[in-house]
C-alpha cells in the first residue's frame, strides 16, 4: 500500500490505539466505529438502524443474541458469502460477533465459525453473546489478522466486515487469508476504500484512523493487494458511497480537531466508498 506519512506510520501505536478505542466501544456499547469525539462512519443512529442500512435483514437481526450487533460494520458479507452447511468460516475482526452468529446459522452444527479479534473487551462481549445464544459452533480467539492463529488450508471461507482498513499491513492480511483458505476457498470481504488520496490533515489524524478512514487504502491498491496474495477470480460485487452525515455531531467535533473546512470534508467524504469483494484461492 506504500508508505504514507501520518498517524499510522508507527503501526504498533496505531494498533494500540485501535485496540483501546474498540475496547471502549465494547465496554460502553457505543453505536458507532467513531470514538466519542472522533469521526465517523457517519452512523449516529442506533446499532440496528445502522445494520439494516448496510444490508442485514430484519430476520437476521432478530436471530442475534442481544448485544451482538454494535452497528460497526459497513456491509454484510454473510449475505454475499453463500455459506453452505458444514463449512468452516473465519471472521477477521469479529467484534461482538454479529457476522459469526449469522454465519453459524448458515453453516449449521456440522460447520464451524472462528472469530478472530485483537480487542479483549470485544471478545468478552462476543463470548457472552455466544453463551446467551447457546451457540456451539462458534469459537473466538484473541489474535491479530496479520498473524492469524489459524492452520494452513483449514477454512472454506474467510469473511471480514469493515476491518482490514484498520490494518497497517493489508498485503500481509491478504497473504494470511490466502494461507488459511483451502484450495478453492473464498474471501468475501466488505471494507472501506478510497477513490482518491486523503488530504494530509485527515491522514495525520489518529481519530480518522480509528474511524475507518485514514487507514483505508486506495481502491486499486486494495484490489492489487488481494491479487498479489495469489487470489484469482476477483469480483467487486458492490460499491456504495460511504454514508458520512455532515450534520452529525461526531463529524462536527472531528472538524474542530482536523483543520479542514466543510467543503473539503465534503470532497473527502465523496472519495470514501464501501466495497464488497469476492476472490478465490485457486485449486492448484
Amino acid at each position: 500500500m506504500g508508505k504514507r506519512k501520518g498517524a499510522h506510520e508507527g503501526s504498533v501505536d496505531v494498533k494500540k490505539v485501535v485496540r483501546e478505542r474498540y475496547g471502549e466501544i465494547a465496554r460502553t456499547s457505543q453505536s458507532c466505529c467513531a470514538p466519542p469525539k472522533g469521526p465517523t462512519c457517519g452512523c449516529g443512529a442506533a446499532p440496528a438502524g445502522i445494520s439494516r442500512a448496510v444490508g442485514y435483514s430484519e430476520e437476521e437481526l432478530k436471530s442475534l443474541p442481544e448485544g451482538a450487533d454494535l452497528g460497526l460494520g459497513c456491509g454484510n458479507p454473510v449475505a454475499l458469502a453463500s455459506l453452505k452447511r458444514g463449512e468452516t468460516v473465519v471472521d477477521l475482526g469479529s467484534g461482538a460477533g454479529i457476522d459469526c452468529f449469522l454465519a453459524a446459522e448458515k453453516v449449521g452444527p456440522a460447520g464451524k465459525v472462528i472469530g478472530v479479534d485483537m480487542t479483549p473487551d470485544m471478545l468478552d462481549k462476543a463470548r457472552g453473546n455466544a453463551r446467551k445464544g447457546r451457540r456451539k459452533n462458534v469459537e473466538f480467539r484473541l489474535g491479530e489478522i496479520e498473524n492469524l492463529p489459524v492452520a494452513d488450508a483449514s477454512a472454506d471461507a474467510v469473511i471480514s466486515n469493515c476491518v482490514i482498513n484498520l490494518s497497517t499491513d493489508k498485503e500481509r492480511v491478504f497473504r494470511e487469508v490466502f494461507r488459511v483458505l483451502r484450495p478453492g476457498g473464498r474471501l468475501m470481504v466488505s471494507d472501506i476504500v478510497l477513490k482518491a488520496p486523503l488530504p494530509p490533515a485527515v491522514l495525520e489524524s489518529v481519530d480518522a484512523y480509528v474511524g475507518c478512514i485514514a487507514g483505508a487504502a486506495l481502491r486499486r491498491q486494495y484490489l492489487a493487494a488481494i491479487r498479489a496474495a495469489g487470489f484469482r477470480d476477483l469480483r467487486v460485487l458492490g460499491e456504495t458511497a460511504y454514508p458520512i452525515d455532515l450534520t452529525d455531531g461526531a463529524v462536527r467535533s472531528f472538524l474542530e480537531q482536523v483543520p479542514i473546512g466543510m467543503d473539503e470534508l465534503r470532497k473527502v467524504a465523496s472519495t470514501i466508498i464501501s466495497i464488497k469483494v469476492e476472490a478465490k484461492k485457486p485449486l492448484k
Partner: peptide
C-alpha cells in the same frame, strides 16, 4: 484444535 496454530511459527 486442528484448526488452531501458533501465530508466530504456525506450529
Amino acid at each position: 484444535m486442528k484448526i488452531l496454530c501458533c501465530p508466530a511459527c504456525r506450529g
